[in-house]
Design a protein around this nucleic acid. Structure first.
Lengths: 164, 164
DNA sequence: TATTGTTATACTCTATAACTATA
DNA sequence: TATAGTTATAGAGTATAACAATA
């Protein structure tokens, strides 16, 4: 009978059972596209947040403003579809941008339910600078990557998500 | 005097002032690395969520489990550092995985404050299947990309975030 | 004094249901 | 009946402060 053995909770596990980890092996995770894509996205967004702080634009705000810039009269619905945002979550952003007098709502010419979104003069001025900053950020990342590597990277990323 | 003009609120804006957008132009955003990286990450994570649903592992849970798999005895602190998670936010995940009896806490051999994390038998069996599924997911993405494109993509993504 | 793990908590992001007005 | 915009609200995800036990 094994009665003489110590009860398990008092039996210190042998060191083979409780190894310590000195250096963390992340090689399996690093072989996965999703892991690398997420880490890279977070790294770029971190720099983006710093550089865009003067304009008080977070990445999604910038995306919204940029689409309005290049698509004057775009509707909320179109913004949601293009950016993968749910309508209830866009309302607050658009309200905030309108309150800052960066954009203005105008009635849609053909659909009485919809409102077309337009930049104000202030909004246009801000976006000229903000888009320059965004483009400069790309140039800075291109110091980690060569210009052609950056082009390749973006092309491959598009292949991943546009194949949906 | 311009008194005869309609008050602005009753004056329908001319169509030149309120254009409608038929097709949304996203070309500027698509030129930005951050935008593309985020979209690609979201696309891969979406598939990941579907495929990992049978194991009830979200991406972060999988990352935690995978690091424990390849680093038996890893501490919470090491997990947080490796994955960019804040300690308070890891507690709930580890508790949940322990409650599911996928992992077990054992005292750290050299540091009385820390606990080493280890897979249980159940956890090992689950992770054998889950990591196979994760690798198969890569192969599926490789139908959108060639094998060499996938390797290039991952290498370039690493360059972006490891240069931090 | 510094660090590990933890609690409590707040803030942001994302998701669902339901309403209104127009189509 | 369906759609655009909105409200309210719930659930994740992420953030800081502070504490006990140990280094």
């Amino acid at each position: 009978m094994p009665r003489l053995r110590m009860p398990r909770q008092f039996s210190p596990a042998r060191s083979a059972d409780t190894p310590a980890v000195d250096e963390v092996d992340t090689s399996f995770l690093e072989s996965l596209l999703g892991y690398n894509a997420r880490r890279a996205a977070l790294a770029v967004i971190e720099v983006f947040l710093e550089r865009m702080a003067p304009y008080e634009l977070k990445p999604v705000d910038f995306s919204v403003m940029s689409l309005i810039t290049h698509n004057p009269g775009i509707t909320s619905r179109q913004l949601c579809t293009a950016l993968g945002i749910l309508p209830p979550n866009l309302v607050g952003m658009v309200n905030a941008l309108e309150k800052r007098e960066l954009i203005a709502r105008r009635p849609h010419p053909r659909d009485g339910r919809a409102m077309g979104l337009h930049l104000t003069g202030t909004g246009q001025k801000l976006m000229r600078d903000a888009e320059k900053t965004a483009a400069a950020l790309e140039a800075d990342v291109a110091t980690r990557l060569s210009a052609s590597e950056l082009r390749t990277l973006i092309a491959l990323l598009k292949k991943v998500y546009q194949a949906e």
